[in-house]
Design a binder for these strands. Structure first.
Lengths: 226, 226
DNA sequence: ATTAAAATAATTGTATACAATTATACAATT
DNA sequence: AATTGTATAATTGTATACAATTATTTTAAT
C-alpha cells in the first residue's frame, strides 16, 4: 500500500463549496468584503476550476454577489433580511410542527423528550456548542417526522443564512432558557396531537428568537456605515 | 469596425445556466433522464467549463441530481413535491398580498386593475402565452409592492419548479376563468386595504390552482412506473 | 455455456494555459 | 494642476489537456 501514489482525488468540488460557505457563515470572510478567485483558491488549496463551481452555487444562494464589473463580494447582512428569514421560517416550521403532531408515534415523543433533556443538560454544563447542535437536532427531528422534503430543503437553506446572524444571539442566556421552555411547550402540543397548537407554538418560538436576534443586532447595525 | 475580430465573449456562463434550466422546465430534457456533460456542452455550444458551472447551480436548485456513481440525471417530478411547492407558495404569496394591501397606493390599484383587464383580453382572444405572462405580471407587481426581497427570491425559485408542472394546467379553460375571478377578488381586498382578506384570498387562489393542477396530473402520474 | 478477471472505453474531476475584460499607473497635453 | 489617453497589470471567462473513476467489453478458465 504505497500511500504516496493514491493521494490526489480529494473530492474538492463539494468540499470547496462547504468550506467557502462556512467561512462566510463564520464571518471569516466578512460581509461586503471583496474577494478574488486566486486568493480563495490559494486559501482553500484548490485550483480555480472547482473553486469557481463552488462560487456558482454560493452566488445562486446569494452568499456571494457579483458586482457590475464582475468582481466578487460577500453578501451584505441586513436587518430586513433577517426579519424575512425568520418570518418565513416561522411559517414553514410552524407547518412542519403541525404535520409532526399529526404523524407522531409514541416512540417519536420519547425521542423528542430525550433530546430536550440533552439540551437542558448541555445548557446547565455551559457547553454552548452542544446546545446549538442539540437545538438543531430537535428541529431536524420534527422535520423528518413531517416528511415534507421541499419544506426541509428550503429551511436548510434559510438556516444557513440565519446562522450568519445567530452567532450574535446563540450564547445569550436569557434567550436559551426561554427557548428551552418553548421547546417543552411544542413537545407537549405534539404529544397531545394538537396540530393547531403545535403550529402556533412553533411560530411563536421562531418569532421569539427573531425578537432576541433583533435586540442584539440593533446595536451592532448602528455602528455600520453605508 | 471589423466585426470578425470581436466575436468571442458570448457571456455563456449565465446563458448556459438559463438555457439548460429552460430545457428542463420545458421537458426538452425529461424527468429522470440521464445526461452527460459532453452531450450537453455540444447541445448548448459551449465547452465543459461554463457548462459545469451552470450544472452546479442547477444541482443546488435540484433541477439536476447526481447519482451515487457521479452520473447526472434530470430531477424527478412527484405529486408530493408539487403539493409542497404550492402549499409554500400559498403561505409566502399570501403574506405578500397582505403586505401589498398595507402598502398599496392609489396608483398601484390603477395599475393592477389595468393588468387584470389585460389578462381578461388575452384570455378572450385565446393567446394563452400572453395569459400566462400577464398572470405572472400580476403576482410580480404584488411582490414589488410588498418589498419582501427574500420572500420574492424563494418564490421565483419555486415558480421555476412549479413551471415544470404548469404546462399541464395553464391552458385549461375552466381554471383560467376561475383564476380571473380570484385575481379580481384579491385586487378588491387590496383596494379595500383589507390585509387579512387579501392574505386569505391569495392563499385560496394558490391552493385552488393546486387543486386544478392535481386533477390534471393525477392521470398522467398513473401511467408512470418506478 | 457461465462466470470471473482483465483490458478497453467512456465519463467525471482537476489543473493549467490563454483570451477578454477591467483596473491602475503613468505620461502627455491643455 | 487637472484631465485625458495609453500602456501595463490584475482579474475574470473559456477551452483544453490530463488524471481518476466508473462502465463495458473481451478474454480466459472452469
Amino acid at each position: 500500500m504505497d500511500s504516496s501514489v493514491m493521494r490526489t482525488r480529494r473530492l474538492s468540488k463539494d468540499n470547496t463549496y462547504f468550506a467557502l460557505k462556512q467561512k462566510i457563515i463564520d464571518s471569516e470572510l466578512k460581509p461586503d468584503q471583496v474577494v478574488h478567485e486566486e486568493n480563495l483558491a490559494a486559501l482553500l488549496g484548490v485550483s480555480r476550476t472547482p473553486l469557481r463551481e463552488a462560487i456558482q452555487r454560493l452566488e445562486n444562494e446569494e452568499f456571494l454577489v457579483r458586482q457590475p464589473n464582475g468582481r466578487l463580494r460577500v453578501a451584505s447582512v441586513t436587518v430586513e433580511e433577517v426579519k424575512e428569514i425568520f418570518l418565513i421560517r416561522s411559517m414553514l416550521e410552524g407547518y412542519i410542527a403541525k404535520s409532526a403532531a399529526k404523524n407522531a408515534t409514541d416512540q417519536d415523543i420519547q425521542n423528542l423528550t430525550a433530546m430536550i433533556e440533552n439540551i437542558k443538560q448541555s445548557f446547565r454544563s455551559g457547553k454552548s456548542q452542544d446546545f446549538v447542535s442539540y437545538g438543531f437536532e430537535f428541529h431536524d427531528y420534527l422535520s423528518e417526522m413531517s416528511d415534507l422534503k421541499t419544506f426541509v430543503k428550503i429551511l436548510n437553506h434559510l438556516r444557513d443564512h440565519a446562522l450568519r446572524y445567530c452567532r450574535f444571539v446563540s450564547l445569550h442566556g436569557d434567550w436559551n432558557t426561554q427557548a428551552d421552555e418553548e421547546h417543552n411547550f411544542i413537545l407537549q402540543m405534539i404529544a397531545d396531537r394538537n396540530e393547531e397548537g403545535a403550529e402556533k407554538a412553533m411560530q411563536d418560538h421562531i418569532l421569539s428568537s427573531l425578537s432576541s436576534a433583533l435586540e442584539r443586532i440593533q446595536g451592532i447595525q448602528a455602528n455600520r456605515e453605508d
